[in-house]
């Protein structure tokens, strides 16, 4: 603040050197750094433009309805493809992931900030940071070779006792657990670190005074959290969850290895059917001809727009929060 203030008002104290000297070095460096910023914007715009160009080409020749067709036969003649199953699968697996990950992530964030012994809090946060760095393909490998066989028991149990809810009904109880439900669990594990980290940061920002006031009134630890921590951190936790959602929507390899995909739209989340946008792109890419690739680009554009909206909304919430808490501090 102090450095930026003088240049606009140099006229009053020193009238002698009113025009500031601009050196060529300064101008080059400023131009260079501003140029980099512009390059970044251009890249974002180019992503949208290039994807749209190829996608329009593909969608205009689609013999099915792009939004409601189930199957994906873009390389066939005539090409018939649609994103209905993919959109459904993406949404369902992400919703399962959020339902599992958000409560647990908030729990861990509270554990690190309020419950864990102080000496343990730091190392735990550090380990969670490291886990965010595990590549998604390794989660995929683990999910397919370890999680899938180990979830079969849970699947049978859910089918037996909760099969009447339709959601947990499984048509063939002995089929492998390569279902949207398993994908959701795997995605939940993958997005846990990012939601935890962002929530933790937000919870750290809760003014100590609020908590101390609650303690002074005789509140138990849970009441402190419910009355002073959670109300303050709510919007931050929401946007943390949305960042996690953005990641779950776009996750590719972990889904591609676990899910046994087929163009069936089923309400039974334990059945090994369905697909997601990114999984479909990787799976169909190898066999696709040039038009088929354009069709895949079209589905990628839909995914891009969805993640753009989710992430943009999350960032706007965080930014508003920042201004608010800045005014408070």
């Amino acid at each position: 603040m102090t450095t930026t203030a003088p240049p606009p008002t140099p006229t009053t104290p020193p009238p002698a050197n009113a025009p500031t000297v601009t050196r060529p070095g300064d101008r080059i460096f400023a131009g260079l750094s501003r140029g980099s910023g512009i390059v970044l914007l251009v890249v974002m715009a180019a992503i949208a433009v290039f994807l749209t160009v190829r996608a329009v080409n593909a969608i205009s020749k689609d013999h099915g309805n792009f939004l409601t067709t189930f199957e994906w036969n873009a390389s066939a003649n005539p090409p018939v493809f649609g994103v209905a199953v993919l959109a459904y699968g993406t949404v369902v697996s992400s919703v399962i992931a959020m339902a599992i990950a958000v409560p647990i992530a908030v729990g861990i964030a509270l554990f690190v900030t309020h419950y864990a012994p102080r000496r343990l809090g730091g190392p735990i946060a550090y380990v969670i940071d490291l886990l965010a760095a595990v590549p998604s393909i390794i989660y995929g490998l683990w999910g397919a070779l370890f999680l899938v066989p180990h979830l079969l028991g849970l699947n049978l149990w859910l089918n037996e006792y909760f099969g009447w809810t339709v959601i947990f009904e499984k048509e063939n109880p002995d089929s492998a657990a390569r279902s949207l439900f398993t994908v959701g669990i795997l995605l939940a594990i993958m997005i846990l670190p990012i939601i935890t980290n962002v929530s933790r940061e937000v919870i750290r920002q809760v003014p100590k005074m609020h908590e101390e006031a609650a303690i002074a009134l005789g509140a138990t630890r849970w009441e402190v959290i419910r009355l002073s921590v959670l109300p303050f951190a709510r919007s931050g936790i929401i946007s943390a969850s949305m960042l996690g959602l953005g990641r779950a929507l776009g996750e590719t390899m972990a889904v591609a290895t676990v899910l046994s995909a087929s163009p069936v739209l089923s309400a039974h989340i334990l059945d090994p059917v369905g697909g997601t946008f990114s999984q479909n792109i990787v799976a169909k890419f190898g066999e696709a001809n040039e038009f088929g690739r354009d069709a895949l680009i079209a589905s990628g554009l839909v995914l891009f727009v969805i993640t753009l909206l989710v992430n943009g909304a999350a960032r706007i919430i965080i930014q508003r929060r920042k201004e608010y808490s800045g005014a408070n501090a």
Binding site: I38, L40, R54
Partner: peptide, 22 residues
């Protein structure tokens, strides 16, 4: 730029691949 840096963080890797492809 600040806003789009944030949004760019969320671009799925597969979309980045499709962009270069197109």
């Amino acid at each position: 730029v600040t806003f789009f840096v944030d949004v760019m963080t969320g671009v799925p890797s597969i979309v980045a691949g499709l962009f270069i492809l197109s």
